[in-house]
């Protein structure tokens, strides 16, 4: 048994210490937010926030994050009370397929936590390691800018 603290709740999982956090979050704890994209830390679709840092959960073992605060997309808000970033992505239709959206929102959350009023260039820099294949980049940047302008 490993105890993981996810979105403020401590939950026990019976998985080996070296199991990737992504699979444990998705399969054992049934979170939908983090996505499998590459398993190689190359695309960012699996991003979660751990102790304030954007982390690629596909290459993070659960044994390495015991006792740390893990936040998934679900931890930010839900459909009835979305986080300002989630709301901004809806308002800007900031997606084509939206598969990368989890990573975009989670990475942007860490950016705004550290730099509440980023420039367009700073947002692009922050998201440069998160891949989008649909070409929704400019919409995503607009959504992050919009969220940064919310109180």
């Amino acid at each position: 048994m490993t105890a993981l603290k996810v979105n403020g709740r401590t939950q026990d999982v019976s998985a080996p210490d070296d199991a990737p956090l992504l699979y444990v979050l998705r399969n054992d704890l049934k979170y939908n937010g983090p996505k499998y994209g590459c398993g190689l830390s190359q695309c960012g679709a699996c991003t979660v926030i751990i102790d304030g840092q954007a982390v690629r959960s596909c290459v993070t073992s659960i044994g390495s994050v015991v006792g740390q605060e893990i936040t998934t997309l679900e931890g930010l808000g839900d459909m009835s009370a979305p986080h300002k970033l989630q709301k901004a992505f809806m308002d800007e239709n900031a997606a084509q397929c939206g598969y990368c959206m989890n990573g975009m929102i989670m990475r942007a959350k860490v950016l705004l936590d550290n730099n509440p009023k980023p420039t367009d260039g700073e947002i692009r820099q922050a998201l440069d390691g998160n891949l989008c294949r649909c070409g929704a980049h400019n919409r995503i940047v607009r959504a992050v800018l919009r969220a940064s302008q919310e109180a």
Partner: peptide
């Protein structure tokens, strides 16, 4: 222009993707 119907669930981790079926 309206919010696309699939974006709110995708932005919040609600069940919508094939990956989310268990």
């Amino acid at each position: 222009n309206i919010t696309r119907i699939d974006i709110p669930p995708k932005a919040t981790g609600s069940l919508i993707w094939i990956q989310d079926l268990r």
